[in-house]
Design a protein around this nucleic acid. Sequence first.
DNA 1: TTTTTATCTTAGGCTTGCTTAAATTAATTA
DNA 2: TAATTAATTTAAGCAAGCCTAAGATAAAAA
Lengths: 225, 225
Amino acid sequence: MASVSKENYLKIIFYLKQHDVKPVSTSEIANELEISNAATSEMAKKLSESGLISYKKYKGIDLTPKGKKVALGVIRKHRLWELFLANVLGLSWAEVHDEAEKLEHISSEKLIDKIDEFLGFPEFDPHGDPIPKKNGKLPKLTGLVKLSEGKVGGIYNVIKVNDLDNELMNYLTRIGVKLYKQIEIVEKLIFDKSIIVKIDNHNINLSEKIANSIYITQLKNAELN
Amino acid sequence: MASVSKENYLKIIFYLKQHDVKPVSTSEIANELEISNAATSEMAKKLSESGLISYKKYKGIDLTPKGKKVALGVIRKHRLWELFLANVLGLSWAEVHDEAEKLEHISSEKLIDKIDEFLGFPEFDPHGDPIPKKNGKLPKLTGLVKLSEGKVGGIYNVIKVNDLDNELMNYLTRIGVKLYKQIEIVEKLIFDKSIIVKIDNHNINLSEKIANSIYITQLKNAELN
DNA sequence: TTTTTATCTTAGGCTTGCTTAAATTAATTA
DNA sequence: TAATTAATTTAAGCAAGCCTAAGATAAAAA
Ligand SMILES: [Mn+2]
Ligand SMILES: [Mn+2]
Ligand SMILES: [Mn+2]
Ligand SMILES: [Mn+2]
């Protein structure tokens, strides 16, 4: 079994690979994990020797099928724990990520499958991210765009939220943003790329950074009236 | 916060201290943790510098109040997790110890308190061990003796079982031994110190080692009739 | 194409927690 | 009490994962 560090490297590589076709560079990983490039280069050598990534010096990194399997296993644990902590034990969606970041590395396959079963084999975690199935399949999220990319006048559903910052999560809770909530885009300011949205009949201004952390789908016209 | 290693040292010192008044020797700890005496001596120095134990070279170790608090915190986490895994997620009492051995080091105070609340502030774990309260108080177990110390003809209740060996737990399950189960001592063999007990109207022979792993209380005469 | 700059890797070093072997102290036996 | 044995600590070294600084390679600019 891979160490905590190695599992975290593999997980990050998987994330970085999702939006890009090119191999992942060591510095991108270093950035994400907040460690030095040097440490990442060393680790790349080791993960490559274990057959978890393919790595050519100066040419970047890709997960091998074996490495991808490990990464998906860790992500599965992470997201199932998050949902369990939120739905069963009543932690807020702001709190679950940090706990899950540790739990993902220590819980056995068997325990995770019990949790999966207990929750009724759910598809999405408390932030809207898809939960990998036991067989490695990842439920699809289609038609997602960032709130910042929505159109003025459009009415949308919140489908997914960036779960990496506690303060953001707490703020979103405070202003009424949660999964599947309806949001209307009232106005977009060119000046600072902030965006004014209507939530629960209140207007509120969201910064560009916040609007980039919220993912939405447009309601079909039929659903609107 | 103490590292995983340090928490394990403190926990073991606490256990070793329970049955003995003398300071705990480094070799006892080394034995229990299955590491070298040398490693334990080194760690003693460090824990002493952090004020978690009192330690004089060659003279053994005691927990300071601060160290005892940490130890009890870890034990609380361990036992609450065990009960949660058994009662909520349906793992067997043979499986929960190993999972809890890892979970005890990573779960936040807040998470543990949620689990405590979810379980209704229980007093005992799946093996009959008392669960330390949030304030550090440990529920009392009185009148416990080892099954090996019971009297022929006596009828007892199983109150606590040694949780350190999976195989033992599974065997006990197979022969019907569980907490609060009634057991009668039918015969004791001098030859190998084994003991014949009646469980569910079956007679079965238990080795000395097994009989030393089961703790019982005598039923009051009034309860016997 | 050559030079400069940016990116990436290697070298050397540190900490934690472990090991074995040697040295020291305490306990036991004579 | 002195000698022997047992228990404990110190010394030296190793692996994992990190760091900073220096060197090598690739990409961009001239
Ligand atoms: Mn998360
Ligand atoms: Mn992690
Ligand atoms: Mn246990
Ligand atoms: Mn432990």
